[in-house]
């Protein structure tokens, strides 16, 4: 059966996942602690930040919203790099990384859509508009969900890896579109104010909480991603062991 050749190939490469498990197990506690600490500090700074003279207290939604949107894009970029790893080096860990980043990225995207919507209601007078930035982020959300559905549709993860990687890379076109949508089109969403060539245009009292929150989100992402990758590796080992068990029972023909 072709099953045996697959599992043998998988087992020779298990050396790497094993090292990954050991290494990530040691890093995780520190990473998680740092994530929680920076989140606490970031939240404190966000609430200590002065209210905006125009937006009032709603400006604080930005400290949740902006880093979530950044992470939504960063997560997709991580997946795109991992997909390159799947296609070029065929490394099994790359596929694990790409697959497990999906739900986390979808959650960050949803968070940014949700908080943006909550902010838009008092500021723009509507929950949602179909402008370029919002629409392109919504498309990103749909792509996350579509890729998750693709992984779910295949019962053998090894077969889902390459199609999903190709699709992830094709979908990467959307990331620059999201980034530059506010410059290319005339949109309701405000243009970039932090990451721009001539330096940030927002006041330091708001910039610092935002940066700390961004750091916290990044740490949270890597903590969750490492944990999810470890789970996925174990899940695949269970699957391999089950296949072997099936072969060993009753001298299966």
């Amino acid at each position: 059966m072709s099953d045996t050749t697959i599992s043998q190939g998988w087992f020779t490469s298990l050396a790497n996942p094993t090292r990954f498990l050991a290494l990530s197990g040691r890093i995780l506690p520190y990473l998680a602690t740092a994530a929680v600490l920076s989140l606490v500090i970031g939240l404190y700074m966000s609430f200590a930040a002065p209210e905006d003279y125009q937006q009032g207290i709603t400006v604080r939604i930005m400290f949740i919203h902006v880093p979530a949107a950044w992470l939504a894009m960063m997560c997709y970029s991580v997946m795109a790099i991992a997909s390159l790893g799947t296609l070029v080096w065929r490394h099994p860990l790359a596929d694990v990384a790409a697959k497990t980043a999906l739900p986390i990225g979808a959650a960050f995207t949803f968070l940014s859509l949700l908080t943006g919507s909550l902010w838009g209601r008092p500021m723009w007078g509507t929950w949602w508009v179909w402008d370029a930035r919002l629409t392109s982020v919504f498309v990103l959300f749909l792509m996350y969900l579509g890729l998750m559905a693709l992984h779910k549709a295949m019962d053998d993860p090894a077969r889902a890896a390459r199609p999903a990687a190709v699709l992830t890379l094709v979908g990467f076109i959307n990331i620059p579109i999201i980034k530059f949508s506010v410059d290319w089109w005339n949109t309701l969403h405000q243009p970039a104010s932090v990451i721009r060539l001539d330096g940030p245009t927002i006041h330091a009292s708001m910039l610092y909480p935002l940066l700390v929150m961004a750091l916290a989100y990044t740490l949270i992402f890597f903590t969750l991603h490492l944990m999810a990758m470890r789970n996925e590796i174990w899940r695949r080992r269970v699957q391999t062991m089950r296949r072997q068990a099936a072969q060993s029972i009753g001298g299966g023909a």
């Binding site: 509507t126 508009v129 179909w130 402008d131 629409t135 919504f138 498309v139 749909l142 969900l145 579509g146 559905a149 779910k152 549709a153 295949m154 019962d155």
Partner: peptide
């Protein structure tokens, strides 16, 4: 795994989401 439970919702989401692209983002019309 391999089940179709969430596919319907995704399809629903995608179909409804393309409508504004087709007819324009006029909120009153939508």
């Amino acid at each position: 795994s391999g089940g179709a439970a969430m596919l319907g919702v995704l399809f629903f989401l995608a179909v409804v989401a393309v409508i504004p692209f087709g007819i324009g983002p006029d909120l009153n019309l939508l």
